[in-house]
Design a protein around this nucleic acid. Structure first.
Lengths: 213, 213
DNA sequence: TAGATTGTTAATCGATTAACAATC
DNA sequence: TAGATTGTTAATCGATTAACAATC
């Protein structure tokens, strides 16, 4: 199906297409042209067609795209046509927030376990999930398939936790700690950089006037 | 100082430079060349020099860059040479996590008030901060300067909250809800898209092998 | 002074947009 | 069939990298 390397610019746009198509679907819209979609999304029609054609021809000349079909195709491209078992490491507010966020579950991202090292938290519940001692991480991963580890621990310990996670054979990390994790290339890392985001916001506040796309 | 429009690609990199320089500073490193920094950060030296020269000549031929000076200059560029009053709207786990995250305070982002609409939360405390009834938002903003509103409410009500915030005259929004906020151009919005991030991660899991920068 | 490294211009590369022939 | 709109090639634009003269 898809060729060697799709540029990351394209991949960053896919979730947004997916969201918009989901909305159209909910609204009961059956077909849409790249032009119409481009107006809603504020991108060029050309870009939409180019992006999609990296993965195949999903449309039909003279008709446009079938919303439901395209929605499902993008899901497949993004790997949303399966479920993922996620463990959360760090049961603080952020870990709790993610654990409670039901929308991920709906999309097939299943929180299967929450770990922490704090004796005051271990044994407590988040929803109906009991917080597990991080000491049991290795045992747990031996007996349970884990696709993704979300790291929501303080940045001081994030690197250690990440190394442990990798030693357990987990191949994907969703990192919320404000550090650059140096890990083997075989491990996929996606980082949420809250502080970087906040700095970009303060930059934008300062430069409100002379803005660019 | 800086010209018309700095490309957003450059701006996205600035916080990362800032973080690395902060680390160098902590390590007691006084000067660094673009070449050395490029090796640490895994970018090209040329890019570092180009990026910085969008804002001015901060280095010295034959010497490189003074770490502390450059660190402070980037802080100024990013608008980190002042403080920002932030209100949090939505005292759920995510709002609580942000409120408790002391690192923002250190950088001059001061959480001055937390609002919620839930009667069970109003009056409760997050640290030493009392959760305020969202009904008092308008009164509060009349009497207190607010630079940024962080929106950590469910996506169903995020747009309404955003409109209220804008009506209060707040000019910058840090949005954690998974919706595209359509707001006047005079308002700056920075969105943290958790679900988009998770989708990119699942894409990467699927396409681990054929990766590209 | 000689060596190092910047600031900056020029060359290359990649991504976006425009155009249009193919085709539903 | 005529009209619409895709898929795709070509043109443009912007961002990254390379090169080097300026200069500390």
């Amino acid at each position: 199906m898809q060729k060697g390397g799709i540029s990351s610019a394209v991949i960053k746009r896919l979730p947004r297409y997916y969201r918009y198509l989901g909305e159209l679907l909910k609204m009961g819209i059956v077909r849409i042209s790249s032009k119409e979609l481009s107006e809603r999304m504020n991108v060029t029609a050309s870009q939409i067609r180019q992006d999609l054609n990296n993965f195949g021809g999903f449309g039909q000349q003279g008709y446009g795209y079938n919303v439901e079909f395209l929605y499902n195709e993008i899901a497949k491209i993004l790997g949303l046509d399966r479920t993922y078992n996620i463990i959360i490491i760090g049961a603080g507010n952020l870990g709790t927030a993610i654990t409670n966020y039901t929308n991920f579950n709906k999309r097939g991202f299943l929180i299967t376990k929450v770990f922490d090292s704090d004796k005051n938290l271990i044994g407590k519940k988040i929803g109906d999930m009991v917080i597990e001692d991080i000491a049991h991480l290795e045992d747990y991963t031996k007996e349970n398939k884990v696709d993704i580890a979300a790291i929501t621990v303080p940045k001081e310990v994030a690197m250690d936790v990440a190394n442990r996670v990798v030693d357990c054979g987990i191949k994907a990390i969703w990192n919320f700690a404000s550090v650059e994790l140096r890990l083997p290339k075989s491990v996929v890392v996606e980082t949420i950089h809250l502080s970087d985001s906040l700095m970009r916001l303060s930059y934008s506040i300062k430069n409100k006037s002379d803005r660019k796309a």
